Amino acid sequence: MAEVKSGGQAAAELSEAALSELMDLCEDQFAQLEKLQNEIILCEPDFCENTREQAVNRLMATDAELKQWLTVEPTLLASNSEVLLQTGKEEMLKLCSELEMVLSCQEAKRDKLRETKELEQKWLEEKKQALLAAKDHVERLQMEKGKLSEHSVLQDTKAKIQKTKVYQERLMESLGDLLEKHVPLPQDEYSTNKKKKNITQELDEDLISLNEILELLMNKVLNTPHDPYVTIDNTFWPPYIEMLLRYGIAVRHQENNFKIRLETFC
């Protein structure tokens, strides 16, 4: 539609003489085209069964026509300068439009490449920062490794052992406080409940606390792991022993019921 309007506008801009000459030239070309078409139709051979021979003949004719067109010198369709000027204007406008489209595509491609370049540069900068941080960390580790000596390692080991001992003592103190609060000595329990229960049997004053029993069991395991059993005597309150056995904290000897040991915890 735009080409029709452009052609109509171009024709309106031409003078009557140039328009008449252009119309006559178009009619001559159209008449020559009809003549050539009629000659081609008349010269076409009849349909034959040998399609291969027919294809070879068409190929030879096309080749001959191509050689003939190569020898022909290009000539202007019109000699009128006004027609040539208007045709040149149309070609230039068409070429400018095509060039504008190419320019627009190239600008879009350039913007896309610029965005990709910025992302790649950002990624490269991040990788460089990570590489520098890794190098600094390696150098710092190497320097720390070079500063370490046998004496410093020994001192560090001693400090860790001391911290472990302090932590163990705190755990034992916490365990003693917990047992003293929730599992009191049998003497205290007997003195507070003597009147209510009317107990006439006196408890042995040499009974040891649950905390002491656990400490005996743990020391036995640590000091003599080949013989971890502790012999039960009259200082062990039977309810304590029963509680330890019932909750899986201690186990009896298979052959001697008066010996117990601390359960092996995995």
Rank of each mutant, 00 (worst) to 15 (best):
I40T: 10
E118M: 12
T51D: 13
L85K: 15
T62C: 03
Q32P: 06
K67I: 00
L59H: 10
K109M: 04
Q54Y: 03
C96P: 00
Q54S: 15
D111V: 01
M101I: 14
A61Q: 14
T116H: 05
M60R: 15
M101A: 15
A55S: 12
L103H: 09
S15M: 03
P74G: 03
M23I: 08
E53F: 02
L84T: 00
T87I: 08
D28T: 14
Q29N: 11
L95F: 10
C48L: 13
T62E: 05
R110P: 01
E126A: 09
L36S: 06
M23S: 13
S79M: 09
L85P: 00
S79W: 01
S15K: 04
R52C: 11
L33S: 11
L103G: 04
T62S: 07
Q68H: 11
C48T: 15
L124Y: 05
A31M: 04
L77H: 03
E73Y: 01
R114G: 05
K109T: 10
E49G: 07
C43Y: 01
L93C: 06
R58W: 02
L42I: 05
L76S: 05
S79Q: 13
D28A: 15
Q121D: 13
L85G: 14
C43F: 01
Q121C: 07
V72L: 14
R114H: 07
K67L: 08
L119R: 12
E39G: 02
A10S: 11
E39A: 07
R114Y: 02
A61H: 12
R58V: 08
C43R: 11
M101D: 13
Q29C: 10
L59C: 14
Q68A: 07
E53A: 15
L66M: 11
Q29V: 03
T116S: 13
D111Q: 05
T62D: 04
K35M: 10
C105T: 14
T62A: 08
M23N: 10
E21V: 03
P74W: 00
A31E: 04
S20A: 15
V56T: 15
W69Q: 05
D24N: 12
T62W: 00
A12P: 06
L25S: 10
R114E: 09
A10C: 04
N80W: 00
E49W: 05
Q29Y: 02
W123G: 08
A12E: 05
Q121N: 12
E90M: 15
E39C: 02
Q32T: 09
Q54K: 12
V83W: 02
V56H: 11
L99H: 08
E44I: 09
E73S: 11
E34R: 07
L22A: 09
I41N: 08
S97E: 01
C26T: 09
